[in-house]
């Protein structure tokens, strides 16, 4: 889904010559001490009980990749590669239950580990340390934000996807026999659900070439004017695709609401219960309903 994600506007980091020089020096130092700092970071992650869903080897592998991407971002000032990596990482670890605080936590730990190593290196030269930190801090913060935001965006995307899936599952459009669909609606209908339900039903009618739809609302606890009008719209939209909707399961309360708010029930084809609705549907489709003789005696043990 391009374009749907939260976009974060980063003010471009203006780098003058001295900053670039400092960052070069910084990156050279971090590259030199890569093995030790990486291990230090992984150790701190384990100590802080972050990323517990992952094995120590996995943590170390990811730590290495993040470390290298981190250095690259510091060096080039471009966070694109890191952004891509952060997205991939998030995709991999979200299904394993890694939480936002863990991701933010590990990035901040890396910032701390690297800052400490800078303190150690420059502790005899405070002025130089000051300059180095001036160059390091904005870059490091920018990287921390990039990784955290990448994770949160990915999580939002996953949540949206799940919501969509749940909504679709909550109103199944069931083809019961040729040209007949059943749409049992259970639970509260809000405008958003009504919209989604209508879209799904219309697609179902097209795909199954349905002529009749039995819409059972036994499981709908309450209805107000807005929802009732949505249902009337759904019925009309189905008719535009050549399908007749039979509404079943109107409770006495809902029937009263509909009459009170003046919904034109004359336009709606209503039958008491789902069984009656299906019989009516079969009549419309031209099927003859034959009584079924069940031989219970023979089936009994």
């Amino acid at each position: 889904m391009p374009g749907s994600e939260t976009t974060v506007v980063m003010t471009p980091v203006v780098r003058d010559e001295s900053t670039s020089g400092l960052l070069r020096e910084l990156v050279a130092h971090l590259r030199q001490n890569r093995t030790q700092l990486r291990e230090e970071w992984a150790r701190r992650i384990t100590e802080a009980k972050l990323l517990t869903a992952m094995s120590p080897e996995e943590v170390f592998a990811e730590a290495t990749a993040v470390y290298d991407n981190y250095l690259e971002a510091l060096e080039t000032g471009s966070i694109e590669a890191l952004e891509t990596y952060a997205r991939n990482l998030s995709e991999r670890i979200i299904p394993r239950g890694v939480e936002t605080n863990e991701v933010v936590g590990i990035v901040l730990l890396l910032r701390d580990v690297l800052a400490r190593s800078l303190f150690a290196k420059y502790r005899r030269d405070f002025e130089q340390l000051d300059h180095i930190l001036d160059a390091y801090e904005p870059a490091a913060n920018r990287i921390a934000i990039t990784v955290s935001v990448g994770f949160v965006q990915e999580r939002e995307r996953v949540i949206r996807q799940q919501q969509e899936a749940i909504r679709e599952l909550s109103t199944p459009v069931l083809p019961v026999r040729e040209r007949l669909l059943i749409l049992p609606i259970i639970g509260i209908i809000d405008p958003q659900r009504a919209r989604q339900l209508t879209e799904q039903l219309l697609r179902g009618i097209r795909v199954n070439r349905a002529k009749v739809v039995v819409m059972d609302i036994t499981g709908v606890p309450a209805m107000d004017a807005t929802v009732a009008n949505h249902l009337v719209q759904t019925v009309e939209a189905a008719r535009l695709l050549g399908a007749t909707v039979i509404v079943t399961g109107l409770s006495p309360e809902i029937a009263q609401t509909l009459v009170n708010i003046g919904v034109d029930l004359g336009k709606m084809n209503t039958v008491g219960d789902m069984q009656g609705g299906i019989e009516e549907a079969e009549r419309l489709l031209g099927y003859r309903v034959a009584p079924v003789v069940v031989e219970t005696a023979a089936a009994a043990p």
């Binding site: 209508t198 219309l202 719209q233 759904t234 939209a237 535009l240 695709l241």
Partner: peptide, 10 residues
């Protein structure tokens, strides 16, 4: 009538 068009009409 396309499903989307029926939806928009209603």
């Amino acid at each position: 009538i396309q499903p989307e068009v029926a939806f928009a009409m209603t």
